[in-house]
Design a protein around this nucleic acid. Sequence first.
DNA 1: ACAAAGATCCGT
DNA 2: CGGATCTTTGTA
Length: 174
Amino acid sequence: MSDNSGRLSRKFFSRDVLDVAPDLLGRVLVRRGRGGKETRDIITEVEAYRGERDLACHASKGRTKRTEIMYEEAGLIYTYLIYGKYWLLNIVTGEKGVPQAVLIRATKKADGPGKVSDMFDINESFYGVDITKPSKIWIERSDIILPNYKQYPRVGVQYAGDWAKKPWRFIMED
DNA sequence: ACAAAGATCCGT
DNA sequence: CGGATCTTTGTA
């Protein structure tokens, strides 16, 4: 599920988003900037967005210029601008052709998706980047494997009706 | 071409 | 609780 460097593989992300999401908790998000400077932090909170039927998922309205990346292979990055300020970091999961993505909502030192984007300097240039290949961003294994976690309803998706009640927000416990 | 809404954050 | 801020999307 990971190569010699510990970088999580395409196989890891190719599972259903409800399996991938909790499995990301405790793992390390790494960003290599210019000059080789690395920013790294443990993932503590994620949310799952699962297919066209999921009314909270952007792909619920079908394939558009923005959502088409979710129909591609697992491991690609889906990022989009929210409220004119933050490029939220998502990773495509599941089988090709079925739109799913997991949103990285928080790390130890960035308690919110917008703060994650600030801390790791995520911007529009990350759209479609393969997080399983050597590049400016990847996720590594850590000593923490499947930590204790709890599930809660997703944030900011009241418009999704019953789908807003699904406990697809996963938070690691200390 | 125009208007509305949004997977957020911060200050009051 | 309201404002900032600007892209995406739906409607005409």
